[in-house]
Amino acid sequence: MGKTTPDRDRLKILFVASTGGHLTQLLALRDWWATQERAWVSFDHPHAHAALADEQVTWAFSPTTRNIPNAIRNLFLARRVLRRYRPDIVVSTGAGVAVPFFWTARALGIRTLYIEVIDRISTRTMTGRMVYPTVDAFAVQWPEQQALYPDSRVIGATL
């Protein structure tokens, strides 16, 4: 999915997730991302500090749910981070902090992968609805979720 050259075999990934279950689901993919070049965007919270202690992290503005000032701050943050880090792909499980990063990545021509959360089987998340039209790839964890996102791919549970 990413650009590879003889000099660089690894993907350069930017993970974006709020703390709690969203971050935990990305951490569960460690077997996939451990050998990749990566950076993270999350909230300045004890869970994130503990989980990402040895990682390159940018702290986003929180809360994001229905908070217009923080959404705008995170949009500017997304521009700065994406232009500075220049990832091959942005990966997220949500929540609201993913939206400005995905929209900005799209504008900059950076590929995106969204993984719908494991615990929303019969309804779509707000973040899923907002990024679905713009993503390069949309993954779900249950076959039932595919009815909600017709162009998605079932990858199975990440926990």
Rank of each mutant, 00 (worst) to 15 (best):
I121G: 09
P100M: 01
Y132G: 05
V140G: 08
P133E: 03
T127P: 10
T104L: 01
R111D: 13
R124A: 15
S152L: 03
L113M: 13
L113A: 15
T123I: 15
I115L: 05
R129C: 11
I118P: 00
A147P: 06
V99P: 01
I110D: 02
A137L: 06
P150W: 09
V99G: 03
S152M: 03
Y114P: 11
E116H: 07
V117R: 12
S152P: 09
R111W: 04
I118K: 10
Q145K: 00
G109T: 11
I110H: 04
L108C: 09
Y132S: 09
I115G: 04
W142A: 12
R129N: 10
P100D: 03
Y149L: 00
E116D: 14
R129L: 13
E144W: 04
I110A: 00
Y114L: 01
W142N: 13
R106Y: 05
T127R: 08
R153A: 13
T125N: 05
Y149A: 00
P143K: 02
L108E: 12
T123V: 15
G128Y: 11
T127V: 14
Y114K: 00
D151E: 13
P133F: 02
A139L: 09
F101E: 13
E116A: 01
A107I: 07
S122H: 15
R124L: 10
Y114E: 13
F138K: 07
Q146L: 08
Y132V: 06
T112W: 01
A137Y: 05
V140M: 03
E144P: 06
L113I: 15
T112N: 08
M130I: 10
W142I: 07
P133T: 07
S122D: 15
F101I: 03
E144H: 09
A147C: 05
E144L: 09
Q141W: 03
Y132F: 14
R111F: 08
A139D: 04
L113P: 07
I121S: 06
